[in-house]
Amino acid sequence: MTQSIAALNPARHGKLHVVTQRDFSHASEDQLVPVVVQECVDAATEFPLVFVKNAQTGEFTLVAMMGLQPQQNLYCGQGDIQANYVPQVLRLHPFSLRPSEQAEQLMLCIDEQSNCVSEEHGQALFDEQGNKTAFLQAQSDACMQFIEHQQITRQFAQLLLQHNLLTAQRLTIRLGDEQPRTIDGVYIIDQKRLSELDAETLATLNRNGALQVIHAQLLSLKQLNRLSKRASQR
């Protein structure tokens, strides 16, 4: 999908509307979609959740796997999404908060090429005076909250590293009669090291909610079967 991300401003985007009946075609080539710890339990009921390294920063990023190979998304079809749970980042589309050029502050941006953007239909972004509408304000708040959740997710990854709980895992996918396919560069919770944690550490992880996310991640790996099934039905 082509994108054209621009910082929102009333002069340029005063007439724009956004259709809230969601269209997810923008994600149709996203194999990996970032998720935050706050949504892990829900997301785990639908997608395998794993850590991958960000290509620009090397940092561990928690993602939902939606495909078995690059540019494949087995959930997003012709605009709709075949899933009981939709990750936050997809619901925020076409809005996002991005650092300004000097990286000093975050700016609310919109994908001008998105199918959700229109000049006639949907919710207005600005009123006639150029002020943000209640709709846009709500979107902006949701984006801000997502950034905060991402920060907590980053801390969660740090916590796992600190306790040596991450491990590289090669995923092996079997599709019907084809040769098994492998996916590298994926990191998951190390069950053995988890079982070796002392009682005190476990209690802390339980209290701060990390343990729930850890188990959600581990259980979510079973959703690989769902991906394989979808892939073989294509």
Binding site: Q56, G58, L161, A168, Y187
Partner: peptide, 10 residues
């Protein structure tokens, strides 16, 4: 990049 983000232990 390393100064900013660090390298990961694994």
């Amino acid at each position: 990049r390393i100064a900013r983000f660090g390298l990961q232990p694994l």
